[in-house]
Design a protein around this nucleic acid. Structure first.
Lengths: 247, 247
DNA sequence: GTCCTTGTCGAACGTTGTTCGATCAGGTCG
DNA sequence: CGACCTGATCGAACAACGTTCGACAAGGAC
């Protein structure tokens, strides 16, 4: 197989087109914007989870490579922050009604958890992050108009958002992890919990009377029930700050 | 350069010693045990944080390579679980005194937080993990002997450990992150918070009256204060379950 | 001496985040 | 029109990562 002078070397995989025949690099796809990248990243997360999210995978989702993303986004960390804020924007606040403050707070927590878990394990982004967009001020103002009439002190409301989002985010995070990492192993949640239960029951009875008595409640109970308990605990605590618990 | 039968081929980088002259591979260092590996990993975390923790780095800490660890540990995930359990074992429970249940619970939370933050950002291991060792049963039994005399229902105590450890672990986790990831950027926490404060104050005043009024409380307040508030909130909620709030 | 088990370890594989330099498209100015 | 610049794209490469493989060593059992 001889080649004339001036022709390009071809490797075994195929002969490249000459430059003037090559299609433009971004032919037939949507323009690369920051929003499109965030949306693509979220699509990858929904499909493959956070572990499946790589810059190359996001690029592939957009019909390009990883390097092209770095013009619009500083690094992966910033992309994650943008994805987080994009998810938080899905929240929808009802008209605040102080007479039903408990119910509305509980509903908000449920909604937040639902949004986080609906995007696989996106909840692990929520810890240590603050939405730097308008959502922060909006939610905070909503909390004040809801709880101020109930008589809850300012500084309590000011701190409340943190504690609530920490609990909800943390819970959704744990929920998304499953039990995969518990023993570095390959057990199903049921197997793991019965193993743990058996272990607890095998301990000396005189040392752990209470624990063994309630072992079913300890490891039983669905995530919904456990989540609701934590919210209820905090709402009860919040009510003790109220001068007018009924609004 | 001829080689006799049975000698090893040498590559360009250097001629190997003959086998009978080579020192034993694990000469002059402590034997490689699972405990030693966990301890070395913890040393690496204390020095370089979780991001600096790689299998190669742990191996180096022990005077060997990464591959040698895999005989004693299934994978990195399992090593992390072992490190987590090792850290949890640092907890020390006082004699439970139901008359001082609030104080003792608060102290326990403080201690837990102190242990987690004392090992850099080891707190990020705590989320989604359950200590599979004896500590789980010990802490649970401690909670029951402390809170049962106060009249708190069984199922409340059973769920309490989860909620508390979630809050403490989540808080310590956020604390360890600093504000590095907030904007994918390079701002100090102070710069970031004043930036956020300025942004909130620049919003239309008629839309965010409360938020702008308490903006200092929102972004101010040290971590100790915020942590204590969350604990206090949960303790107040817990007290509402008690039939005998004073023990 | 031969076999087997318990460890040890260098080299390699595939994947990751990120950077560099070349290149292209489109607009602006002389 | 051509020269120049700027915004954007992308292939190739780099260093680091977790993990696997196969070769090898030491020590006990028969």
């Amino acid at each position: 197989m001889t080649q004339g002078a001036g022709t390009r070397w071809s490797d075994a995989s195929g002969v490249p087109e000459p430059p003037w025949r090559r299609a433009p690099r971004s032919a037939g796809r949507a323009p690369l914007t920051r929003e499109a990248i965030v949306e693509a990243a979220l699509r990858v997360i929904d499909a493959d989870g956070m572990d499946g999210l790589s810059m190359r995978r996001v690029g592939e989702e957009l019909g390009t490579g990883a390097a092209s993303l770095y013009w619009h986004v500083r690094n992966k960390e910033q992309l994650l922050q943008l994805v987080f804020e994009r998810v938080i924007e899905e929240m929808q606040l009802p008209e605040p009604d102080p007479a039903r403050w408990r119910e509305q707070l509980s509903d908000l927590a449920d909604q937040m958890r639902a949004i986080l878990t609906s995007h696989r394990d996106v909840a692990r982004l929520s810890l240590g992050r603050i939405p730097s967009g308008p959502m922060l001020a909006v939610v905070n103002e909503w909390l004040f108009t809801l709880l101020k009439p109930v008589g809850i002190p300012d500084n309590v409301i000011a701190y409340l958002g943190d504690v609530f989002s920490l609990y909800v985010g943390g819970f959704a995070f744990e929920e998304s992890l499953g039990t995969a990492s518990f023993t570095g192993g390959d057990l199903s949640p049921e197997q793991f919990f019965t193993m743990l239960k058996d272990y607890v029951m095998s301990l000396p009875a005189e040392l752990f009377p209470h624990t063994q008595r309630v072992v079913d409640a300890l490891f039983g109970g669905g995530p919904d029930e456990r989540f609701a308990f934590g919210i209820d605990l905090m709402l009860r605590g919040l009510a003790t700050y109220a001068s007018d618990p009924e609004g």
